[in-house]
Amino acid sequence: MSVDSVEAAPDDPARDAAPAGAKPILGDRRSGWQQGLVWAFVVIPMIALLATVPVVWGWGLGWWDVAIGAVFYTVGILGVTVGYHRHFTHRSFKAQRWLSVALTITGSMAIQGSMMAWVADHRRHHAFSDKEGDPHSPWRYGSTPWGVARGFFWAHIGWVFDRKKTNWDRFIPDLLADRVLRRVSALFGLWVTVSLVLPALLGGLLTWSWAGAVTGFFWGGLVRMAVCHHVTWSINSICHMIGARPFRSRDRSRNFWPLAILSMGESWHNLHHADPTCARHGVLKGQIDISARLIWFFEKFGWAHDVRWPTTRRLASLRRS
């Protein structure tokens, strides 16, 4: 069996978007204000993250700040991993309408772009993984020391500033045809506002002070956003450069265990690229996959169905000899 024949299930939306002669990969360029927002939502949280040490020494870090940051991080990152990624991009499971809407909203609260834009980029990544057309391959500049350094920076954060947008008509026609999801995704700005205002509101109410509101916004809003960004970007960069490759795939995807908890199971990236539609990425003994466990709960409650769980036969066919 060839590697190409086992890289993805035949009905994987990302794989289906790749045929030669199809619509162009790229669509319109971002407008000036859109590009400005990208810079703001990347640079400001990074500055906030770098400022954490003097903030700790100057103001202190309370348990409420930790709790607020942890809750909003968990909600946002699971919205991306379970919703944006496994549900919308790869159709690893089907969900009741209300759950699809909720996953669109919680994924938006991670502030990594609208659901439509995120899915289009990620389907394009899978269609051309580590090849010409991949929006964030760390190998785009070659394998020399300087090329690897440039590639890592590009895959981790540089690609975010590329003003050329992925062609939605080619990569997400199924989502564009869904009027409800299209409208919820278009309200991305509202969900971003909620994601930043709620931590401040909770911080103020829980401590009954303006200082609590400020620290709630800082830790639960800006710092939480920065950590969420860098964990997700690390899947694009680190997980295509460092780690184990127990399964066969057409690219250089790897498993990087130190990120397993923070990424909610996304860093078991080699299996994911070997079998993109699989609902569980951590399939080997000891591989924690929190996102898969949440999907399991959704299924048990009847909120999700047609879940594509891994099978022993399928995994055996994908293992390296």
Results as ranks from 00 to 15, higher is better:
R15Q: 14
R15V: 14
R29Q: 13
R30G: 05
S31C: 05
L37Q: 08
A40V: 15
V42S: 13
M46F: 15
L50S: 11
T52K: 10
V56S: 13
W57F: 15
A70W: 12
Y73N: 02
T74D: 08
R86Q: 12
A95R: 07
Q96F: 04
V101N: 08
A102V: 12
S108M: 03
M109R: 09
M116W: 03
H125A: 05
S129H: 05
R140D: 13
Y141L: 03
T144L: 08
V148Y: 00
G151K: 08
F153S: 06
A155N: 07
I157E: 03
G158C: 11
R163P: 03
K165W: 00
R182S: 14
R183V: 10
L187Y: 07
F188W: 09
W191A: 07
V192A: 07
V192I: 14
A211N: 08
V214P: 01
G221C: 03
V223I: 06
A226D: 04
I235M: 07
R245N: 06
S249H: 06
S249T: 15
S249E: 10
R252V: 13
S253H: 05
L262I: 03
W268P: 09
H272Q: 09
T277R: 14
R280Q: 11
I290F: 10
W296R: 14
F301T: 15
G302V: 13
R308C: 10
R314W: 02
